[in-house]
Amino acid sequence: MSIQHFRVALIPFFAAFCLPVFAHPETLVKVKDAEDQLGARVGYIELDLNSGKILESFRPEERFPMMSTFKVLLCGAVLSRVDAGQEQLGRRIHYSQNDLVEYSPVTEKHLTDGMTVRELCSAAITMSDNTAANLLLTTIGGPKELTAFLHNMGDHVTRLDRWEPELNEAIPNDERDTTMPAAMATTLRKLLTGELLTLASRQQLIDWMEADKVAGPLLRSALPAGWFIADKSGAGERGSRGIIAALGPDGKPSRIVVIYTTGSQATMDERNRQIAEIGASLIKHW
């Protein structure tokens, strides 16, 4: 067993022997301040990774656009098919120029040779490549099948209805392509620590998230040296922004954090800054 596999296998073990965790309302004060600064709703939840206990939450059962955070769930569904012998990570998928959609920095470079399922998941999570996500959605049967996968996990809230990039439209009061912070946090925890996926697939999923290259201005910008984070960000229309993450000190994750916002007129930089400040408060009061 590799060191990384050992780390993920012992996530519940280490967490069980940690000192009790206590909620700190100071972080919620910052979440509410972010709402004021952005002029928009902000949803927040913080779960203990081992027990699933909610440590703090704000608007945990209000719907927010998922945006690209759905790509972690998508690759979880792909990995479940791999575990069941219905898919192979090494299978190569070929596609054409007509398949390319807006923001496809990886797939646009491989029109000639195609990409493997493993490479597509890596591109979808680490670079948020939209064509990679659409190609992977095709392998599982489309958005409705991802929703069905989530329902089978016990998540009857999260739903995907459309493809990239239309799913980022974020129309107010439109339930399409949305989740709730509580539902997303619980589902992410199941994917990373539950028995739904094999140990190898859980490790692969967290490795992809740990290698995320496009979430630097968010929670990662607030992390002290030595902290662990595996995350996936999302951005959408109407001032929408979000991030889902597993993080913790001492090089291992111990909490799940989900943050979503929508309806702001603020710039992307300002949305990023507010999420980073929430992260800084979380870490300060850990």
Rank of each mutant, 00 (worst) to 15 (best):
K144C: 10
R271T: 10
E87I: 11
G39N: 12
N173H: 14
R202D: 01
T69N: 00
P253F: 09
I229A: 04
G236R: 02
L205R: 01
T131H: 03
E108N: 14
L146T: 03
Y260P: 02
I275A: 04
E166L: 12
L188S: 05
W163D: 08
L218C: 04
L146V: 10
T198A: 12
F228H: 08
P249I: 06
I259P: 01
K232E: 03
L282D: 03
H110F: 14
P224C: 05
S68N: 04
N98W: 14
S201H: 09
G39I: 08
K32I: 13
A266S: 13
F64T: 02
L100K: 05
G236N: 07
W286Q: 04
G279V: 05
I93M: 09
E108R: 13
E195D: 14
A133K: 03
D207F: 10
C75I: 08
T187I: 09
A170I: 09
V29Y: 12
A132Q: 03
G141K: 07
L111Q: 11
N173W: 13
R91Q: 07
M180Y: 11
N50P: 13
E164Y: 03
T186S: 13
P217N: 10
F64M: 06
K53L: 14
K32T: 11
T69E: 02
P143I: 05
N152E: 15
E270G: 09
T139G: 11
L192C: 08
W227I: 03
A148K: 15
G234D: 01
D83Q: 09
I206L: 11
L136K: 04
P143E: 05
D231A: 06
G43F: 00
S104A: 09
Q88H: 14
S128H: 00
P217G: 09
E166G: 12
L135R: 04
S80C: 08
L49D: 05
A230D: 00
T126C: 09
I244L: 11
N134H: 04
S281E: 14
K213P: 05
S201V: 04
R220A: 04
N98I: 14
A123I: 05
W286H: 05
M184Q: 03
M153C: 11
F149A: 09
L136T: 04
N168R: 04
R41L: 09
T187R: 05
L89W: 07
S57D: 08
L28Y: 10
P172N: 10
R220G: 04
T186E: 15
E237P: 14
I244C: 09
